[in-house]
């Protein structure tokens, strides 16, 4: 279904960043990410190296990436890079929709809302994987990813239900937000999605 190439993924990121007014920043060289990773490490929330290598991070409109778009690296294949792009752009949609103060409050202070915001963003992973490969990810496995975000088991349960509820909607052709919509429109018109 998907015909992803390095050049296509590079152009995809460029397009999505322009569309959602995002700035792509290499995570490894960002001083603020070094500070955040150190803080998370000391608070026991996330391992410093894991945070820097395994996670893309969006703050406001800045997307910090542990890979260069289009360049395949360990843990970051082209499909994963496309899914990550849509996931992070969805966070920007949330940021715009809620407004910066409410987004920051919900993401930083309230674990329940952080889990919701991440569940909604992971729902784009569910949809993009299905559109690109025909494979439906397991909602429970995807929701388990939230354990890296310092949320409770109750939050993981809620996220599992939200993701499971999205499965029939996605199978029926439902589009889960503006980032998914824009991604599919661009990929279709550029040969990345039939």
């Amino acid at each position: 279904m998907a015909e992803l190439t390095s050049d296509l993924v590079r152009r995809f990121w460029h397009h999505m960043a322009a569309r959602f007014r995002a700035q792509i920043v290499p995570k490894a060289s960002a001083a603020e990410m070094q500070i955040v990773s150190e803080l998370l490490n000391r608070m026991g929330i996330a391992d410093k190296d894991d945070f820097m290598r395994r996670f893309a991070t969006t703050i406001g409109r800045r997307i910090y990436l542990p890979f260069a778009p289009g360049d395949v690296s360990p843990g970051w294949g082209l499909l994963s890079q496309v899914e990550t792009c849509v996931h992070e752009c969805h966070h920007i949609v949330q940021y715009d929709s809620l407004g910066p103060p409410m987004f920051v409050y919900q993401y930083v202070v309230s674990k329940a809302r952080r889990a919701l915001l991440e569940a909604q963003a992971y729902r784009t992973n569910l949809e993009m994987r299905f559109r690109l490969t025909g494979q439906m990810l397991d909602p429970a496995s995807l929701a388990a990813s939230l354990r890296s975000y310092d949320v409770s088991e109750a939050d993981v349960l809620v996220a599992t239900r939200i993701l499971a509820a999205a499965v029939p909607t996605i199978r029926a052709g439902g589009v889960m937000g503006p980032a998914c919509s824009e991604a599919q429109r661009w990929l279709r018109s550029n040969g990345g999605l039939r």
């Binding site: 309230s110 674990k111 329940a112 809302r113 889990a115 919701l116 569940a119 949320v151 409770s152 109750a154 939050d155 349960l157 809620v158 239900r161 939200i162 509820a165 999205a166 909607t169 052709g173 439902g174 589009v175 889960m176 937000g177 503006p178 998914c180 919509s181």
Partner: peptide, 28 residues
């Protein structure tokens, strides 16, 4: 709207069928 009860015992919007409809076409 599909609502989910979060771990803080507050209802939150899990899916907005109007949004799905506007992005997907048809009636949802």
């Amino acid at each position: 709207v599909v609502e989910a009860c979060g771990s803080d015992q507050r209802w939150v919007v899990a899916q907005d069928c109007d949004e799905v409809q506007s992005l997907s076409g048809g009636l949802w």
